[in-house]
Structures are given as structure tokens and as C-alpha cells.
Design a protein around this nucleic acid. Structure first.
Length: 194
DNA sequence: ATATGGATGCTCT
DNA sequence: GAGCATCCATATG
């Protein structure tokens, strides 16, 4: 809690909560280029630039965890925009989302990839990999590198040890189908910086 | 360069 | 008991 935020201000502006209350697709696109920062338990600053996101919608999206309504597992996804939603994937990995729009809507953006920038040594240790290219290039990989787990479910962006900063970086991106799903698999809801 | 299959655990039917 | 918003090692072109 006693987090040294002043050092983060040298990196960029804190994204305000209202940023996450907008349309989910727009938030997913605008998150590209933003900087994800996590302080681990030892106080190390870890993170990098968001390079790939996917939008999961509240309606007409069978791949979205919110599609069948609220359950214990997905309840964080129905919190207000700016809430962190973490779930366990394939029994082995964690995936991190940021909830979008208003409370009780059930939409979120999956962070699929970041470009490592801060805390490289710690992230390498967390991942047991030295190759920067495979450190954070996948949703399960980046949570492992950053030490994100179910413990982080329901945390608030910029009001916890998890932050999103804007350093003004604007990057071109492409839009594709989402990865690793079978339902609603053709929707163009994945965004990747070029 | 692309394709497969195994590990893993929890949620929901 | 099925089915996953995955990763990695291994196997093949």
C-alpha cells in the first residue's frame, strides 16, 4: 500500500478510472502502448508496454466469461471498469484482464502481451527464462513474469500495486481474430501493435 | 516453420 | 466428467 508512486510519475501519467468506463473495444485499442506496472511483494518495479490485447464483450460474445452470467469465478468481471479480473487458465496459468464499462456489465480486456521494460532480472527469475522475446509474450507468461495470481483478483488499477501509465506513446496496430477460443472465434477483437 | 500432445486444477453441468 | 481466453517440449516438413 505504501507505494512510491512518485517514481512512476517520471514514467507517465496515471490513466484515470474513467478511461476504463468507455466502450470495451476502444479501451482494448487504447491500452496498446500504455505501460503496465506491478510492484511485487519485495517492492520491485516490474512491467512493460502493452503490445497485444483482446476484447471480451458483455453481449453477443459466447467466448466471454460473462456470457453465461455471473458466477463465483467470473464475478470480478462484473465489477466497475478499472478492476482487475484474474482467472486460472488450463489449470496451470493465470490470465489478467482489466474490466471495462460500468458495474454489472461484464466486459473486459485481456492483456495478452507486453514488451518487457522494468524489472527484467526479477521477471527472468520468475519465468526461469533469460530470452526477452519469450518473457511476456503470452497471457500466462506475463502474469508469471509479473507475479500476478488470483490474489490480485478484484484489485483496482492505480489504487493498488498494479498501475497503468500513459507516456504518450501511440503505436499502429492490426486487428485480428482472437486466439485460443472456439466460440465466437471469428470476431475481430484482438489488437496487436505492429 | 508448423503441428501435435501432455501437464494441470478449477468451475460448471 | 467435460472443457477450458495456455505454455512448452517434441516431432515432423
Amino acid at each position: 500500500m505504501a507505494i512510491e508512486d512518485f517514481s512512476l510519475k517520471e514514467i507517465g501519467y496515471f490513466v484515470p478510472e474513467i478511461f476504463f468506463l468507455e466502450n470495451t473495444v476502444e479501451v482494448a485499442q487504447k491500452l496498446l502502448g500504455k505501460i503496465l506496472i506491478v510492484y511485487d511483494e519485495a517492492g520491485n518495479l516490474l512491467g512493460g508496454r502493452i503490445a497485444e490485447t483482446e476484447a471480451y464483450l458483455s453481449t453477443n460474445d459466447a467466448a466471454s466469461h460473462s456470457y453465461c452470467g455471473i458466477t463465483k469465478r467470473n464475478s470480478a468481471m462484473f465489477a466497475i471498469g478499472g478492476t482487475v479480473y484474474v482467472y486460472r487458465s488450463y489449470g496451470v496459468h493465470f490470465c489478467m484482464n482489466i474490466v471495462t464499462e460500468q458495474e454489472n456489465i461484464g466486459a473486459a480486456v485481456l492483456i495478452r502481451s507486453i514488451i518487457p521494460m522494468f524489472g527484467l532480472d526479477i521477471m527472468k527469475r520468475n519465468r526461469m527464462k533469460d530470452d526477452l522475446r519469450v518473457l511476456c509474450n503470452g497471457p500466462g507468461k506475463l502474469t508469471q513474469a509479473l507475479g500476478i495470481s488470483l490474489f490480485d483478483n478484484f484489485k483496482k488499477i492505480n489504487n493498488s500495486n498494479i498501475h497503468i501509465l500513459d507516456d504518450g506513446c501511440k503505436l499502429d496496430f492490426i486487428t485480428t481474430k482472437r486466439i485460443g477460443i472456439t466460440k465466437s472465434a471469428d470476431l475481430p477483437l484482438r489488437f496487436v501493435i505492429i
